[in-house]
Design a protein around this nucleic acid. Structure first.
Length: 315
RNA sequence: CGCGGGGUAGAGCAGUUGGCAGCUCGCCAGGCCCAUAACCUGGAGGUCGUGGGUUCAAGUCCCACCCCCGCAA
């Protein structure tokens, strides 16, 4: 008989894992819990989270609790537990902290898929943090949830290399896929007792915070390498930007450039042979390859220069 | 109707109080040079997002609509 699972998830990162469980005959996803529809996009239209869409496509019952902490949420999940004898919860990028008494409901606890090699990068921006910090590798951790964030015992880890030109968008997708490939076997082996959970080495823990757009303002006194990593790490979210003539310009693609050609006394955009450079800290420089002025679409540096023969940055 | 910027040549931009539609790059042809991302000469390429309106005259003023984007979430 199939193991009964309740899946908690909201974002795109959840989809491959949910899909893997839905397709696997060893599991029956008896219900899905996801966040409520939220205002989204330029017109603030109420939009369902991706996981809800997938739940509807597969005709799986789903719940969108306004507040997971409320009594009602607990009562409903308790009812599901009594009716279906759920074996485990699987939590992938749900987006809210689940209260302990809900975590205690399923017979064998709650399994989480996290996009980093725990205990490194506990928290909400694990993918961005790994790239921004210049990590050579990342991976996924399949773990048990406990009371503290990303703190529980580990069931399995898979490591992958971070490519030197990789953005968070790409790594995010690869990790979501890797998690989905790893999850089913690990989950089955945990439930049939073949895996013994291993505690994390808490002394090695590092943490990362939720990012906002303001975090993406580029500090040009940092070195070109640091900024290059930040640009890749914050692509596509939250994006990196700088101010120019009082307007915001997103910087979406850069490459470490040649310092020696540039005037080191200014920290401005500088045009050299149809190419756009900016002087950074530590005697380094970046070439801007792609940017997006406020209100405009993404364009190459060459296109930007065509309409801005003289450009300067306010920093 | 959350706030805001924008749609003008293949690309990026300018266009002043309405008065013959421009700039940089690219493209085509030719020239110069040991050579070039350089330079010179000539050329092609625009129903100014769409539909109405005002006017002798609208890219420009008025109304409606379509599309793109930044903030926010």
């Amino acid at each position: 008989m199939a193991y009964k699972i309740v899946f908690f998830g909201t974002a795109d990162f959840s989809l491959p894992s949910l899909d893997a469980l839905l397709k696997d005959s060893r599991f029956e996803v008896v219900a899905i819990v996801t966040k409520p529809d939220a205002p989204f996009g330029r017109h603030q239209t109420l939009t369902p989270p991706p996981v809800k869409v997938m739940a509807q496509e597969h005709n799986v019952p789903f719940f969108q609790f306004e507040k997971i902490k409320m009594e009602e949420s607990y009562e409903i999940l308790k009812q599901v537990q009594n009716d279906r004898m759920v074996d485990a919860y699987v939590v992938v990028s749900y987006g809210k902290i689940i209260p302990q008494r809900i975590l205690d409901l399923p017979k064998h606890g709650c399994i989480n898929v996290h996009g980093s090699l725990l205990p490194r990068w506990r928290g909400a921006s694990c993918v961005q943090s790994a790239i921004a910090a210049g990590d050579k590798t990342s991976g996924v951790t399949i773990m048990l949830l406990d009371a503290e964030m990303d703190h529980g015992d580990i069931l399995a880890q898979k490591e992958i290399e971070i490519n030197s030109d990789e953005t968070s968008g790409k790594l995010h997708d690869r990790l979501a896929q890797l998690g989905a490939e790893t999850l089913p076997d690990v989950l089955a082996n945990y439930l049939n007792g073949k895996i013994t959970p291993q505690p994390q080495d808490h002394s090695q823990a590092t943490y990362c915070k939720i990012l906002s757009r303001d975090d993406g303002k580029i500090d040009w006194t940092k070195s070109a390498d640091e900024i290059d990593r930040l640009v890749r790490a914050y692509n596509p979210w939250p994006g990196t930007w700088t101010e120019c003539d009082g307007k915001r310009i997103k910087i979406s693609k850069v490459e470490t450039g040649n310092w020696k050609e540039l005037d080191d006394k200014r920290v401005n955009f500088q045009i050299v042979h149809d190419r756009l450079f900016i002087v950074c800290g530590s005697k380094s420089a970046l070439e801007i390859l792609e940017l997006q002025p406020e209100g405009k679409r993404v364009m190459t540096a060459k296109e930007y220069i065509a309409g801005h023969p003289q450009v300067t940055s306010d920093n």
